[in-house]
Structures are given as structure tokens and as C-alpha cells.
Amino acid sequence: MLISHFLIVAGLLFAIGFFGVMLRTNALVMLMSLELMLNGVNLMLVAFSRQHLNMDGALFVFFSITVAAAEVAVGLAIVVALFRKKQTVDVNAFKTLNN
């Protein structure tokens, strides 16, 4: 098995997550797409770590998962707070700073 296979899957995951963030206006789906991008980067880190038989990348993935969990908690709390204000999670409804 080639290392480039794993790297291409990781890059595709990142690209698809980016696609979701750009395309959708639902804040929850945008958060999930952000998680997809993080997953792609995690997969790439593990692949390189395995290639060099060095544990540093795998340890970084450990920290990355922890930080992502904290990020999701805060992001979802913000989404709930925004929902209380406007009764929707569509990001197009939140353009108060626009004018």
C-alpha cells in the first residue's frame, strides 16, 4: 500500500469539508463540515507519523481531538444562543453587523 493513497483520501476529506462550509448556510452543517476538515488533517498526520515510524504526529492527533471536542462544545453553545435570538440557525439571518 502506498502512503499517497492515505494522503489523497485525507486531502479529499479536507476538500469536501471546505465544500460544505462554503455551500451550506445551516450553522450546524457548517460545524459538521469543519469537523470533516479536522478529520482529514488528523488522517494526514497519522499517515506521516506511520511513514516515519515516529509517534509525534499521533500524539498531535490526540491533542487535536481534545481541542476539537472543546471547540464543538463552544460552537454548539453559540449556535443555541443565536437560535434563541432569531429562532433559526441559518447564517443568512445573522447579518446585524452588515449595515
Binding site: 483520501v9 479529499l12 469536501i16 469539508g17 460544505g20 451550506r24 452543517v29 463540515s33 470533516l36
Partner: peptide, 9 residues
């Protein structure tokens, strides 16, 4: 993985 990721978006 990739198919499910596409379906998420």
C-alpha cells in the same frame, strides 16, 4: 468515508 462526507454536506 468519502461518500459519507459528501452526504453530510
Amino acid at each position: 468515508t468519502v461518500f459519507s462526507a459528501v452526504m453530510v454536506t
